[in-house]
Design a protein around this nucleic acid. Structure first.
Lengths: 226, 226
DNA sequence: TTCATAGTTCGATGTTAATCGAAGCATTAA
DNA sequence: TTAATGCTTCGATTAACATCGAACTATGAA
């Protein structure tokens, strides 16, 4: 046995698909509950609990108890750094886990990331809302501004209803295709729902692609630019 | 299955002790043969071959055939970066794999890191050379200054000979025990060789410890401080 | 109290993969 | 050619671990 830091032990902790999904979900800096992380990883709560125990023992994440929830955060910025470097390597060597057409242009343009909009249009939405000062970002995460609150109500989104859920209103989500942030959280999901309701877009079941109608895309652009 | 770069696949490749030993051995920038890597990892040639095939398939290392040897190198600087970040995390959270005297003072003071000096004296050498402006560090890495070139020649190091190798002259190497940089690269190796030749120090075979004689240590201190 | 939710522990199952002995190629030297 | 070296492939064994159903604990709500 050699001396030195045990790289393998840390890397092995990041080397399981379920755990790496959890950790990338935590990259936004927001604390997430065990159940949320289980859903992100696509495993049952029991399995997630086992993984989280390992990550906790390895000091990759730190838990914080609050009521009957356990919120997890990454144990430090070095973890984010590691994940980012590994992402870079993975995309350099072409290790993507996309099955259905990795270079599918429609997928890159607009797709569903669980329940919110991702892809180029997702990134455009995020930066558009930020430029219009409807959302603000700082080290705590993303938040809806006062102007953003007014906008949401005018756009037909019932914020009070969203606030009843434990889920955060706004969350940043790193976009793998554009390498920038797009908007997640219940507000992000509500926006996409509203796009559907207004007839701006509809989902292509069979895939994650979101298809915008011509006038829908015009309206969307106006929303981002104005 | 989620979209995005497959972190887990890359991390899993780094997450095996045998493989991580091989990869850290390659961090020096030197190409090593399969047999050498097997010895570094402490496994049989068959096992090493299996690991190297995996690393090659994952594009973590690239092989180069030469005669009846196969030389391996890391596939890019991003791999080194990843290993260094993981090293930092591992030592932060106290994951060390030291069995034989983790706090062996001699080992912490001065030891061989492949072919150059590491430990407290290695770090002192690095910061001493930097303070004397014999080496300079910036975001591109470490480089020998003009004054450093003069110093090297005066110290009895043939730089022209070193430059013929593909190996970088100066490289930073993160020291796990001191958590600071020490000097690697062919110049770092040449310096240690020169310490041996001058009788300042000798290696304790059996271990990685480097033992300085009293006057050798005095001279070394003068070299770092003046 | 009773009920529901969040999370964990236990136990069983199935899969993956690390390991090495033995044999097989490939290259070099005599 | 024969012999030796470097490395790989094959096959079998073993150990680790990810997964989930079922049961259990803890907190909060009615």
């Amino acid at each position: 046995m050699k001396e030195g830091p045990d790289i393998a032990r840390v890397a092995a902790l990041l080397g399981d698909p379920a755990r790496s999904n959890m950790l990338t979900a935590l990259m936004s800096g927001r604390a997430l509950t065990a159940a949320e992380l289980a859903q992100e990883a696509g495993v049952t709560p029991q399995t997630a609990s086992s993984h989280l125990a390992k990550l906790e023992a390895g000091q990759i994440v730190i838990p914080r108890k609050q009521g009957r929830h356990r919120y997890f955060t990454l144990s430090g910025p070095d973890i984010v750094e590691a994940l980012e470097v590994l992402m870079g390597i993975a995309s350099r060597v072409g290790h993507n886990r996309v099955r259905t057409g990795p270079r599918d242009p429609a997928l890159r343009k607009a797709r569903v990331c669980y329940d919110h909009l991702a892809g180029e249009m997702g990134v455009a939405l995020f930066s558009g809302l930020e430029a219009r000062k409807l959302i603000s970002t700082d080290h705590n995460g993303v938040a809806l501004t006062d102007a953003g609150t007014d906008f949401a109500e005018a756009f037909g989104i019932n914020l009070n209803e969203l606030r009843t859920s434990r889920r955060p209103l706004c969350r940043e989500c790193l976009d793998w295709s554009a390498r920038q942030s797009h908007l997640a959280g219940s507000f992000g999901a509500a926006l996409l729902d509203r796009f559907y309701d207004l007839g701006w877009a509809h989902r292509n079941m069979e895939s994650r692609v979101v298809i915008f109608s011509p006038e829908g895309e015009r309206n969307f652009k106006a929303l981002c630019d104005s």
